[in-house]
Design a binder for these strands. Structure first.
Length: 178
DNA sequence: CGCGGCACGAGGC
DNA sequence: GCCTCGTGCCGCG
């Protein structure tokens, strides 16, 4: 696995035809941020450098992770393996993200059930907030979280609710293809 | 600090 | 259906 320049923050943009360009940012302690596909490479770059102005683009960063992204957006049943840097999230968010990562490909959970499973019963609304601030999509699969009443809930990544629908449809098709 | 607002949900009416 | 409140957290003053 290619390491980032010593102690520095590195990012990489991943072209994913036909979806666009995904991106991720890596620091000394692991993944700092990842992003669902943007329409263009330039937009993906802006996302990465907007949040991490000092980040340097590294063409061969984390090739194994890139392979997982490519497989996933090709419809593959991928469970992402990546070391996450938790230093920028609250303890509550860490509990929720950790638990959500164990919700498998093609399955969903409600905001309330996720709150309870993460050890914070009653905090469904807090879970919504944590999803909105998810720094690690799709590694932390926030698109798999729906409302208890059967509604989809929201989605604040740049693709909006359509992207959530699309991701869920892709996963359910992949699962039913067996 | 307090207060309002959120990708929620349960309970009361 | 409409409150109201618990929950976590943030931005604003």
């Amino acid at each position: 696995m290619t390491e980032e320049p010593s102690g520095q923050i590195a990012y990489r943009v991943v072209r994913l035809k036909p979806h666009g360009a995904a991106w991720f940012v890596v620091g000394p302690r692991g993944l700092l941020r990842s992003g669902l596909p943007e329409p263009t490479v330039a937009a993906a770059r802006r996302k990465a450098t907007g949040e991490f102005p000092d980040a340097v683009e590294v063409a061969d960063l984390w090739p194994e992770f890139v392979r997982q992204l490519e497989d996933y957006f090709r419809g593959g049943r991928v469970t992402f393996k990546a070391r996450l840097d938790w230093s920028r999230v609250t303890p509550f968010q860490r509990d929720v993200y950790r638990r959500l990562r164990r919700v498998p490909f093609g399955r969903t959970i409600t905001y309330g059930a996720l709150a309870t499973a993460a050890g914070h019963p009653g905090a469904a609304r807090g879970v919504g907030m944590a999803m909105k601030r998810n720094p690690f999509p799709p590694v932390v699969p926030c698109h798999r979280v729906k409302e208890a009443g059967g509604g989809l809930g929201g989605f604040s990544a740049s693709g909006g609710i359509e992207q959530k629908k699309w991701l869920l449809a892709m996963e359910s098709q992949s699962v039913s293809r067996h």
